[in-house]
Amino acid sequence: MSHDTMHIAFTLNGKAVEIDVLPHERLLDTLRYTLGLTGAKEGCGEGECGACTVHLDGLPVNSCLVPTFQVRGRDVRTVEHLSPALLAPLHECGATQCGACTPGVVMAAAWIRDNSHLLSRFSIRELMAGNLCRCTGYDGIVHGVERLVASEQGAA
């Protein structure tokens, strides 16, 4: 297969990674099936549900829409990189039920926490609208993100 593949290097959760990938390979599949990071989920495969959200150079992206070769030289962070301590507010507020959307929700929430200046222009409900959840009705998620942001601001 080597004649079909491309060799790329990128940073994954703070560590250097070098792999061979197929030109049409999706970042989601590379993470899940090649690198064993199964936190990100495939909910729709077309960028609608957000269950596969990861951070690419600090921005949330749907990893099902990113060809893996495009991440060469860039910084990829997945839910596995987050500190569990950070997740307590989401846990307490009932932000997870079945858990299938949760890793994506958590990555969006972490991005909001790291960019809380956005909340002067956008509501949490607007910023979370790229992550479909079918269980919670969103209140648990929205309350959890509010508390996450508040705890971060309290700590700063």
């Binding site: 899940r32 064993g36 199964t38 936190g39 990100a40 989920k41 495939e42 997945t78 839910v79 596995e80 987050l82 569990p84 997740l87 989401l90 846990h91 307490e92 009932g94 932000a95 997870t96 039920q97 079945c98 858990g99 299938a100 949760t102 890793p103 958590v106």
Partner: peptide
């Protein structure tokens, strides 16, 4: 009581069928 498997889901550690090696 907090959801027992909540942290496992929030950290992405929970292994659904397609996550199993």
């Amino acid at each position: 009581m907090l959801r027992l498997e909540g942290l496992s889901k929030l950290t992405g550690a929970e292994r659904y069928a397609d996550d199993m090696p």
